[in-house]
Simulated assay, not measured.
Amino acid sequence: MTEGRHLAQFNIARARYPLDDPRMREFVENVDRVNALANGIDGFVWRLADDSGHAMNIRVYDDPTILPNLTVWESVEALERFVWQTVHRRFYGRREQWFAALDGPPLVLWWIPEGHRPTMEEGAERLDHLKNHGSSDYAFSWDSLPAATHWRTARCGTTSEHAA
């Protein structure tokens, strides 16, 4: 952990089908399971959620097909452990089954002061900044983190795919 700061991550996915479509069933039925797993990982700090316990009902970019995820972690290592060393990796590897390609990066990372809880608007603004200006201290992706070792070896897909 970097003393006094945590790592925020915001990622989005465009659902290929409505969430109640049978083709989305396996994904939807496992959201709570995967979120519970993240909540139990050493280094997990916080997740944005509504009364359902997740953020799939929260609208971002005024687009009901975009599913957001906003979390805070103590360190790069904690986030990587969840993304690449748990069942999450299997769902990530099947993302094309449930989600369509986006015009731009699906994930942004940034450092926040310990105790800060970013808003959905903050996440969208950081993602837009990354899309329009590239990686910087303000908004970056996995490839900007030298400590992100699992991302380089265990990820599914090409270097342009940064989803968590």
Rank of each mutant, 00 (worst) to 15 (best):
M24L: 09
R25S: 15
E26G: 03
E26V: 08
F27N: 04
V28H: 07
E29I: 07
N30F: 09
N30D: 09
V31G: 05
D32P: 09
A36E: 06
G40P: 05
G40I: 01
I41G: 00
G43T: 07
G43L: 01
G43Y: 00
G43E: 00
F44A: 00
V45Y: 14
V45F: 10
L48H: 12
L48I: 10
L48E: 06
A49G: 10
A49D: 02
D50Y: 02
D51P: 03
S52H: 03
S52T: 11
G53I: 09
A55E: 13
A55N: 12
M56W: 02
M56E: 01
N57W: 13
N57P: 04
I58V: 14
I58D: 08
R59A: 12
R59L: 15
V60W: 06
Y61C: 11
P64Y: 01
L67T: 03
L67F: 02
P68Q: 02
N69K: 02
T71I: 07
T71H: 00
E74R: 12
S75T: 00
A78H: 08
A78P: 05
A78E: 10
A78T: 00
F82M: 11
V83H: 01
V83T: 13
V83G: 01
W84Y: 14
W84S: 05
T86I: 13
R90I: 00
F91S: 05
Y92M: 10
R95H: 11
E96I: 11
Q97D: 07
Q97N: 06
Q97K: 12
W98L: 15
W98S: 07
F99T: 09
F99Y: 12
A100K: 06
A100W: 04
D103F: 05
G104R: 04
G104I: 06
P105Y: 10
P105M: 03
P106S: 13
P106K: 12
L107R: 06
V108D: 08
W110K: 06
E114C: 07
E114N: 02
H116D: 09
H116M: 04
R117W: 09
R117S: 09
P118D: 03
M120F: 02
M120L: 09
M120K: 02
M120E: 06
A124D: 11
R126T: 01
D128C: 08
L130Y: 14
K131Q: 04
K131C: 04
N132D: 07
S135T: 08
S136M: 01
Y138I: 06
Y138W: 10
Y138K: 14
Y138V: 10
A139R: 15
A139E: 15
W142L: 03
S144I: 00
S144Y: 05
L145H: 06
L145Y: 03
P146S: 13
A147H: 10
